[in-house]
């Protein structure tokens, strides 16, 4: 189908975009890569009155390679990360995740900020940036604030973003040289949305170990017991599976059928094995 009618504006600066969004009283949507939003509009699931095109804003294209972290503007595309055209703080985890995300034609336009702001439960970046302990900067006419990637999404397609806020950048700590990671996406077809997604990061030098489950019928789940197993450096597969199962039992607000539960445990166990192998 075709999108319903809307107005379109392309501001020249982040300040102008914030002003347009603030005065739209909830009738506008921000257009970045549009790879989800325009699909939802073509399907007539979304029908904003105004699109504010932020895809070309220079403020959202910046990539800063700092001492202990990398700052990536929200407008950076999946393909730029896949091709390492921007600095990679994750020692290969982010390019690996980017390459598994949809298809090249989608990755050429879709952005990290758009993925995080949409908060599709099956999306890759919310889980990856949560596993890397990233922080998100959001900007509005009221000022800026910083939010942890873990917890940024509050529900299916729901985030902590206020109506007048624009996701400006993601700040990702650099992994130490000895850090290891695991990334497992289970999907019936390459490029499809994940049926199960697990991201594990072990960085002993920074005393940081975390395993996150995506595609979890809601926001990514930080698996506390499994992260503890990861921190202990154990690779006993039964113990890993038991810890993941215990974490899933604690996530009482999620409802997984037996098949989904099995996929989640398999994905998490495989990600942990990649780290400890």
């Amino acid at each position: 189908m075709k999108a319903p009618a809307f107005d379109y504006v392309r501001p020249q600066s982040l300040g102008e975009a914030m002003a347009l969004l603030a005065k739209s009283s909830g009738e506008a949507r921000l257009l970045a890569g549009g790879q989800s939003l325009l699909a939802l509009m073509n399907l007539r699931i979304a029908a904003p009155a105004l699109l504010i095109d932020i895809a070309r804003l220079p403020e959202l294209a910046a990539a800063v390679d700092g001492v202990d972290r990398v700052i990536l503007g929200a407008g950076i595309t999946h393909a730029m990360i896949e091709d390492t055209r921007v600095p990679d703080p994750s020692r290969g985890l982010m390019p690996r995740a980017a390459a598994s995300l949809a298809y090249r034609a989608i990755r050429n336009r879709g952005t990290i900020g758009g993925s995080l702001a949409l908060a599709d439960p099956a999306a890759e970046w919310p889980a990856v940036f949560a596993a890397l302990d990233g922080e998100i900067t959001v900007a509005s006419p009221r000022g800026r604030r910083s939010l942890n990637c873990a917890g940024f999404s509050t529900g299916i397609y729901e985030t902590q973003l206020a109506e007048d806020e624009i996701l400006e950048n993601v700040r990702i700590p650099k992994l130490s040289p000895g850090a290891r990671w695991g990334y497992v996406k289970l999907a019936r077809k390459s490029g499809e949305f994940a049926n199960a997604l697990a991201v594990a990061v072990a960085d002993p030098a920074r005393r940081f170990c975390r395993i996150v489950l995506g595609a979890a019928n809601g926001p990514p789940i930080v698996l506390a017991a499994a992260s503890q197993v990861l921190a202990e450096g154990r690779s006993d597969p039964d113990r890993l599976r038991g810890a993941v199962a215990a974490d899933l039992d604690r996530a009482a607000d999620r409802h997984f059928d037996d098949f989904q539960r099995h996929l989640n445990i398999v994905a998490a166990a495989r990600a942990l094995q990649q780290v400890t192998a």
Binding site: Y8, R10, L31, G34, Q35, L38, A39, N42, L51, D53, A55, A79, R104, A105, I106, N108, R109
Partner: peptide, 15 residues
Amino acid sequence: GEPVRSCLTLAVACD
């Protein structure tokens, strides 16, 4: 120069 989905791209955004 890069492949894109022309169904998920607005003509107006290609200025």
